[in-house]
Design a protein around this nucleic acid. Structure first.
Length: 679
RNA sequence: UGACUGAUGGUGUAACUGGCAACACGUCUGAUUUUGGUUCAGAAGAGUCUAGGUUCGAGCCCUAGUCGGUCAACCA
């Protein structure tokens, strides 16, 4: 067992501190509060894993709360999808809550605010209100309706609630501070009139609370201890606290909001609005398109819950902007699938191989290991015959020294079968390769134990028997966008970066017959190709597989690298100044440490400085003469470097002499000594 | 010309009250391998945005700057 001193993230530090300050552990409570207006994505997974992870870590309840305060946007469909996704990730919520459950309480508290003179009904247009709001750099001006009487406010609010007014005509606003530097404090809206059918409360309400009014109070009603949200809500915190102040019962727990940075993934976008646009403009086939960063998309693509949870764990959280490389996510699935995926053989780009010395009409049943990572995973049967398919990429008529696969006159092993040698090719009139004629070594069958079966050949390739293969459709996916962070460009929209080739459909891939029994919940490793899973478009007689992720392919990388090398000419970088700059940096760095050194180490460092001084000019060094007297180390380093330059023939000017004199006068014996050497 | 917030290898995160900047991905070697996968062994890569200051000692504390993000929806 290894002793892992696990490091805490900053939220955990906050909780630990609260606990240390006497906050009772059994009062800890968290929540995940999605708005049911879209599907969950990998960014939400960060929040889900954080909140539910905290719940697991501290044995605290975690509520799933649907923030359903805007019936114009929300639908039951989304509620269901969100629940499905969270459950699929493997988390259990303590309570299923809805902001709409608190509509009555929220309304009553609003009435209380009115009675206290802290809220008023406004009846201006949204343009007028926006106008009065001011800007971040200039204060707002009060609404002319700000000082309505309590009685009138009460009456108007009641009539808003009863549906007497049209949407947009009246609003309930909190009376806070129109000059606050925080825009959210400039008389924020509590309620607006919406005449829409709510997916849960139906037509009961004509007024709906805004996010700010509903969120903190909901946290309070559920007695959530730590309300964790993303950074863009940071500015809302002041309002969150103000609202709480109005209604809080000091004997109850007061929730606190803390913010973390949302997770961005490279080569994709991560906001519901943008993902929705991809769906609506049919860039993708739906929210669960396997190219989407949604949980449902990743699921359909073949990602496992474990891989996503692990990704969230490994990527961590913090408070700074980030773009996490997709390669980390891909690593996480590979790591997971490598342990669990059944190995099978499939040929995506087939070329026919005919074994000239293998009896026509004969079929052999061979055995393929299910999973080399698990010795007890067993084997499955795979038929072998005279005519086979192999990948086109696995054959070259003439091989160069680093091509290990099949070539004329060259041997390879067919995985779990025989060693074959390419003897001849058959081409059509246009010179296109039609089939490869090979001979097979009948004694070389895998596992037969014969001497021939033990022979080492340069490589092993996968294959399927032509007569037994299942034809299927295979979909390969590439990144959805061509830019690493498509939505961070000022002059261009993320839609400009869409990768036109993000989907590649292979209509006639050939699979080994074992895949006829493929289960939609299982992942397979198509040997040497990657991980694949059955798509929901599959039907009897028409299998469709999605490529989840490829295997690490050092061969492809090698090829790409050599191809690139041939294209790139030379580095246009001016190297001399760069070296000189780093030499100066090096001297400064060495200097910083000097005062901590003594004896041989000091001497060594001084020598290093003299060496570095070779690459430094006087012009670069001079600015450092101004180094504070306190920084003895740096001054010493500068002095030594200067000494080296003087030794090379640099004439002493007044600046140099002044510097040397100041060193001679310094308290430091070392500095005096070195200065003495060159004065 | 505002308020708030952040800055640590290519990327993402660590570094408890100041004490040799760590882990993972990625990259590169080598070994093993009937998957150019896996596994194993190793390497390179940051002196912590800049300039000062405090300190025996600063990624961490102080000062001033620089650069990035957020904030003016009857969205959340």
């Amino acid at each position: 067992m290894k002793e892992a001193t696990e490091s805490l993230n900053f939220i955990e530090h906050i909780i630990e501190e609260d606990l240390a300050n006497g906050f009772p552990k059994d009062k800890l409570c968290f929540r995940f509060p999605p708005e049911p207006n879209g599907y969950l994505h990998i960014g939400h997974a960060a929040s889900i894993c954080l909140n539910f992870g905290l719940g697991e870590k501290y044995g605290a309840p975690v509520n799933l709360r649907f923030d359903d305060t805007n019936p114009a946007k929300e639908e039951q469909e989304y509620v269901d999808a969100i629940k499905r996704d969270i459950a699929w990730l493997g988390f259990k919520w303590a309570n299923e809550c809805y902001s709409s459950d608190y509509f009555q309480q929220l309304h009553d508290w609003a009435v209380l605010l009115i009675k206290q003179g802290k809220a008023y009904v406004d009846q201006q247009s949204s343009e007028q209100i926006a106008e009065q709001k001011g800007t971040p750099t200039s204060p707002g001006t009060p609404s002319p309706f700000r000082d309505r009487s309590v009685a009138e406010n009460l009456d108007l609010f009641e009539r808003m609630k009863n549906g007497e007014f049209a949407p947009g005509t009246y609003l309930l606003r909190a009376k806070i501070d129109m000059a606050s530097p925080n825009m959210h404090m400039r008389d924020p809206i509590l309620y607006r009139i919406i005449h829409a059918h709510h997916h849960r409360t139906g037509d009961t309400w004509n007024i709906y609370p805004m996010y700010d009014w509903a969120h903190g109070e909901s946290d309070y009603l559920e007695q959530v201890s730590h309300s964790i949200c993303t950074l863009e809500f940071k500015a809302h915190r002041e309002l969150y606290d103000w609202y709480l102040d109005q209604i809080i019962d000091p004997s109850l727990l007061r929730p606190k909001q803390r913010e973390f940075a949302r997770r961005n993934l490279s080569f994709t976008v991560m906001s519901k609005r943008k993902l929705l646009e991809l769906v609506q403009k049919k860039v993708v086939t739906g929210w669960d398109d396997p190219r989407m960063p949604t949980i449902s998309g990743l699921r359909r693509r073949g990602y496992t819950p474990g891989s996503i949870r692990n990704f969230s764990e490994v990527a961590g959280i913090s408070r700074r902007e980030n773009v996490t490389d997709v390669s980390l996510l891909e690593f996480c699935v590979r790591e997971d699938l490598n342990q669990s995926a059944t190995r099978v053989m499939a040929v995506l780009n087939p070329i026919k191989v005919v074994l000239q010395n293998y009896p026509a009409g004969q079929t052999e049943i061979l055995h393929l290991e299910n999973n080399p990572e698990k010795t007890d995973a067993g084997t499955h049967e795979v038929p072998f015959s005279r005519e086979l398919y192999i990948e086109r990429e696995d054959f070259k008529e003439e091989a160069d020294s680093n091509f290990f696969r099949l070539a004329l006159g060259q041997e390879v092993r067919l995985k779990s079968a025989y060693i074959i040698k390419a003897e001849a090719v058959v081409k059509d009139a246009a010179g296109n390769l039609l089939e490869i004629h090979c001979s097979y070594d009948a004694d070389s069958r895998s596992g037969s134990g014969t001497e021939a079966s033990q022979r080492k050949v340069k490589s092993t390739i996968h294959w399927v028997s032509v007569a037994h293969a299942i034809q299927a459709e295979v979909r390969e996916y590439d990144r959805l966008f061509l830019d690493e962070s498509p939505d961070t460009h000022e002059s261009k929209s993320y839609m400009d970066f869409i990768n036109p080739n993000s989907l590649k459909v292979i209509k006639n891939a050939y699979l080994e017959p074992h895949l006829g029994k493929a289960s939609p919940n299982e992942s397979y490793q198509f040997q040497r190709l990657g991980y694949f899973t059955l798509d929901s478009d599959s039907h009897a007689g028409g299998l469709v597989f999605n490529k989840t992720v490829g295997l690490k392919d050092t061969w492809a990388k090698q090829n790409a690298a050599t191809a690139n090398k041939q294209q790139t000419v030379a580095k246009p970088v001016a190297q001399v100044p760069q070296e000189a700059k780093s030499a100066l940096n090096e001297i400064q760095y060495l200097g910083k440490k000097l005062t901590n050194l003594s004896g041989d180490k000091l001497e060594e460092a001084l020598q290093d400085i003299r060496v570095q001084a070779e690459n430094v000019t006087y012009e670069e060094l001079e600015p450092l003469f101004g180094t504070a007297a306190k920084k003895v180390g740096t001054r010493l380093a500068v002095l030594v470097a200067l000494g080296a330059l003087i030794a090379k023939g640099l004439p002493k000017n007044t600046a140099i002499q002044t510097y040397i004199d100041s060193c001679l006068a310094d308290e430091s014996a070392l500095l005096q000594e070195e200065a003495g050497k060159i004065s």
